[in-house]
Design a protein around this nucleic acid. Sequence first.
DNA 1: ATAAACCTGACTAAAATAGTCAAGTATCTA
DNA 2: TAGATACTTGACTATTTTAGTCAGGTTTAT
Lengths: 141, 141
Amino acid sequence: MKLTSKGRYAVMALVDLARFNNINPVSLRDISLRQGISLDYLEQIFSKLRRKEIVQSVRGIQGGYVLNKKAKDIKLTNIFDAVDEKVKTVQCKKESKKGCNGKAIKCLTHNLWDELENHINNFFDEKSLEDLVKENNDRRV
Amino acid sequence: MKLTSKGRYAVMALVDLARFNNINPVSLRDISLRQGISLDYLEQIFSKLRRKEIVQSVRGIQGGYVLNKKAKDIKLTNIFDAVDEKVKTVQCKKESKKGCNGKAIKCLTHNLWDELENHINNFFDEKSLEDLVKENNDRRV
DNA sequence: ATAAACCTGACTAAAATAGTCAAGTATCTA
DNA sequence: TAGATACTTGACTATTTTAGTCAGGTTTAT
C-alpha cells in the first residue's frame, strides 16, 4: 500500500491554496514557505495536479495556481489519483504459479484486501477539500 | 503508510495454518509450497509471530506451528502489529520548523490522517482470523 | 528588458522491501 | 544414537521506492 508524503503534501498544499483561492492566484513559493515543503517538489506535484485539471496555472508575475473546480467537488480520491498515490493493497503477480488472477482462483486473502481497499476508498470519496478547509477555518495561518 | 507483502504473507500463512490447525502442527515447508511464499521469508515472519505469542512452535520431525489462541481471538491488528506493519499515515517531523507536534500547532491536515488511521484500524480490529477462514471454507486448497 | 513564476526532465542519496544465505539447535523416529 | 526434519537467528543484499535536488528552460506582467 502506498500512501506517503507526496499525497500528504498534495493535500496540504491544496488546503493552503483553497484558503486563499478567492483573492488571487497563489504562488508555489508562498505555499512552500507556509507549509515548509520544497519548492522543487511542489512543482512536480502541481504539474500532476494541473494535468488532472484539479488546478489551473497562471503564468508570469503575480501568477500562481487557482483551483479548477469548487472545493467541495474536489475529493481526496481525485487528489491521490492525480499524484499517483494508489490505494492498492494487494498486488498478486500476474503470472504467479499459484495463479491468483482475481477470477477463478484467488489467494486465500484476496477478498480481504478488496474489502479493505473499498473501506479506505469510501473514506476518500467522501472527504472533500471543502471539508478540510472548514476544519481549519478557526485557525491562524 | 506501510502495508506490504510482509503483512500480506503473514495473514495468508495464518489463514492456511488455521485451516489445518485442528489436526497437527503445520510445517512452514507446507505453507511455503501451498502459498508460494519463500521458506526463508516465512521463517522470518513466524519468528515474529511467535515472539508476539500468536503462534507456538513444535520442534522436531512432524513439528511445525500451531495457533496459540483461538482463531476468533486473533485480530488482523494483532497480526500486523507482530510483523511491524504499521498503519501510520502521517509522520510529522519531530523538530520541524513548522512545529507540527500533534499538540498546540498541527499541520493543516493532521486531523485528517488521524481520522484515516482510525478508520483503517477499525477495520483491522473487527476482522479476525476466524472470519477469514470461514470465508474460505467452501474452497479447495 | 527583466524578474517572477510556471514548466519539465533527468538525476540521486537514502530508506524500505523482499527476500537469500549461513550456521546453527531441538526433537522425533528408525 | 544417527540422522533427518523442522524450527531459530542474524547477517547480508539486490532491487525498488521515496523524497527530493538540479539544471535549464518558457511565459507574461510591469
